[in-house]
Design a protein around this nucleic acid. Structure first.
Lengths: 235, 235
DNA sequence: GTCTATAGCCTGATAGAC
DNA sequence: GTCTATCAGGCTATAGAC
């Protein structure tokens, strides 16, 4: 996948494994800064976030941010790069031979899971898009468009073979994206309306069940059989 | 409805009609500033937006912003107040006697329509929520929670009477919110992925049809009959 | 590699002439 | 009511001691 950050230093901070040189401290600081930056950018947007606050959160002097990442903009790109990779490394090959119900169900569940485990990534990505995707337009026009086109063509073949109801595949993908990401991005609204302090495993599973049933039903499909939920760590 | 802005001046900018005193210029400037502010806040978030840029966009000196709205924060609250009213003045009374299919269909279509006609409002609201709703938490905890509770209880009665499938009413409302607002908030992503320059009436109608069919089907309902679309201005 | 000090700019807000 | 001039403070980025 294309890197958003062109980095002649051979690494852009996304890799958990170091390429060459031990540099344990360097890698550690890289990660610490990226993590702090993700939080600040997600909380205040690109312009609203300050390198000072990021440095404070990371527990290092502000100047070190500029030592590791030459500018605020490069740091932001590195964070986005991390996010885009995290999101896309999942569920990549879908084949026409697969069962549409199994594929869609897994897709929805994986997205709900990501919304639960990585809400900050989702929020930051959402802010970037809402603001007109100034740093991600190229990525959307090339890789994301191709990704959607591929999945859409598989869905169309399923429809042609009469294996699911005729629905617009693009709108279907957007529906899955929106309904799942919503639980990350609008977390505050949802929890406040439901009068809860935070998400719990059980609620997340309920949401996944609900969305899978709803959307699959709209496609004329029935959710695949699943193991009953039991003790955590099963499955 | 509670005003977010406490304004002893008797108006908070939300009213198109002036309460007393002609003040044509004053009202005009109020509206100009609010409109410019909505755009800047939606594009850059609260912190990222600057009063200078808002003034430039409105075509007035920066000091006048502080003359009309005493602070950046008050201006932001006035904009949010406008939005919250716009969103809630629609579809308020739903009764148990109504047909669930008709109500849900109308709800979905109205939301898609708002996403099309007022994308900036939706985007600004989304940014506020994503950032933790620092200015709207009270509103969500009181009015919005009550609104959702009322609708949810109606849906539950419909279910009890066997007039629709058993689904969680809260998740259903969240699904309608998320799937419709997505077309406003993620406009850039959707248009870029679909390789289009802007939305067209036809596509918006298609989206409304798609979402209505999908979601109603998940509730075991069939969309109500609708007039065929014809020349604009019909209906 | 780390960190202090600071340059240069932009911010929100205000004072005061018109 | 309008607008220029200006303030104090926060911002990104950098220079240079350690």
């Amino acid at each position: 996948m294309t890197k958003l950050v062109v980095d002649n230093d051979s690494k852009s901070g996304a890799e958990p494994k170091r390429r060459y040189k031990p540099g344990k401290i360097r890698d550690h600081n890289f990660q610490i800064i990226l993590q702090a930056a993700e939080q600040e950018f997600a909380l205040h947007g690109y312009r609203g976030a300050s390198t000072q606050k990021i440095a404070d959160r990371a527990g290092i002097p502000k100047a070190n941010i500029h030592y590791y990442f030459s500018s605020k903009n490069k740091l932001y790109l590195a964070v986005l790069d991390n996010i885009v990779h995290l999101w896309n490394d999942y569920l990549d090959e879908v084949r026409v031979e697969d069962d549409p119900a199994v594929v869609l169900d897994a897709f929805i569940r994986k997205k709900v899971e990501l919304a639960y485990t990585h809400p900050l990534s989702s929020k930051l990505f959402a802010m970037e898009i809402i603001q007109g995707a100034p740093h991600l337009k190229d990525y959307i026009r090339t890789e994301m468009r191709a990704w959607v086109r591929t999945k859409a063509s598989v869905i169309e073949q399923w429809i042609d073979e009469g294996r699911m109801k005729k629905v617009d595949p693009y709108y279907l993908i957007f529906l899955i994206w929106s309904s799942t990401q919503h639980y990350a991005d609008f977390e505050t609204q949802i929890l406040t309306v439901m009068n809860r302090a935070e998400y719990e495993r059980e609620m997340i599973d309920d949401v996944a069940d609900f969305l899978s049933r709803m959307i699959l039903s709209g496609c004329g499909l029935t959710p695949p059989k699943r193991k009953k939920r039991s003790a955590p760590g099963s499955q």
